[in-house]
């Protein structure tokens, strides 16, 4: 099934993320079955699914960390297998539960990843990014003194320092308090609005998806069982009061 979200697709532009017929097997066990997705630039895409559905595997393939067994993936028009370096230059990534280097300061951690992402003017970029995140003044503190929420902001800073076209966030709200979740939501919306970033996030926090995402996909047992814009999803399921109910219905009936 090809589920394009043509509504947002800008004319003449290749989609930010394009996945065609991707299958992945691990130790003889197929974890992704014939995945097809097309996400236009400028979307905030929420990738839903229960634990073990294959979300992280998908994200690993999209971020060039893992070679799929079959199929093709293009990010910003570049093939993840044959043009992986071009892809990496255009993506930012925040893995789940990353703690960074505790003995280094926030600045040192950021500068390290900035240089590896090919950023020029590292100091200025760090300054600008921390200002954007309203997080200045902590640059010279070691990360071991940081709370979970503070680390997450350093993680976001690291992921956007080089101003990527597509930002991948793996369960970004995991372990955050309500205030942290709200801050993160604001940051995601601003990145999308002010910098035009396409955002792809794995999550299982449905309330957040409703507040942040412009389109969603649902993965179940390695199969994409649903994908559409948020707007149309809400129209499709007028009877359901919340996204949670929609999700439960999808998982149980495999609506497509």
């Amino acid at each position: 099934m090809v589920l394009a979200m043509e509504s947002k697709q800008r004319h003449g532009e290749s989609p930010a993320i394009e996945v065609r017929g991707v299958t992945h097997a691990y130790n003889g066990h197929t974890v992704l079955h014939d995945l097809n997705l097309s996400i236009p630039a400028g979307e905030i895409f929420g990738f839903l699914g229960h634990n073990g559905a294959g979300k992280t595997t998908t994200m690993s393939i999209l971020t060039t960390l893992l070679r799929q067994t079959a199929g093709e993936v293009k990010i910003a028009g570049f093939n993840t297998l044959s043009q992986s370096i071009d892809v990496r230059k255009r993506i930012g990534y925040l893995p789940e539960n990353v703690t960074f280097y505790n003995d280094l300061t926030a600045y040192e951690n950021l500068a390290y990843f900035a240089r590896l992402s090919g950023v020029e003017e590292v100091d200025a970029k760090i300054d600008e990014t921390l200002a954007f995140l309203d997080f200045r003044g902590v640059e010279h503190k070691r990360l071991k003194t940081f709370s979970k929420g503070m680390r997450q902001r350093i993680g976001i800073a690291q992921a956007i320092l080089h101003n990527p076209a597509v930002l991948f966030l793996d369960e970004p709200t995991s372990g955050l308090d309500p205030m942290g979740i709200k801050n993160l939501r604001d940051i995601i919306l601003r990145l999308n609005r002010e910098r035009g970033m396409t955002i792809f996030m794995n999550t299982h926090l449905l309330s957040e998806v409703g507040k942040t995402c412009t389109s969603i996909g649902v993965l179940s047992m390695g199969k994409l069982i649903y994908s559409d814009t948020m707007e149309r999803t809400q129209k499709k399921f007028p009877d359901e009061a919340s996204l949670e109910e929609i999700y439960v219905r999808m998982e149980t009936t495999e609506v497509s």
């Binding site: 690993s60 971020t63 060039t64 960390l65 992986s84 370096i85 990496r88 230059k89 993506i91 990534y93 925040l94 893995p95 789940e96 539960n97 990353v98 703690t99 960074f100 280097y101 505790n102 990843f113 590896l116 992402s117 090919g118 690291q158």
Partner: peptide, 18 residues
């Protein structure tokens, strides 16, 4: 092991350096 335990390996490998 330090990189692995702090969870940065996927991050590092997603950088253009290779």
């Amino acid at each position: 092991v330090r990189d692995r335990k702090s969870g940065v390996v996927p991050l590092l490998l997603s950088r253009p350096a290779g």
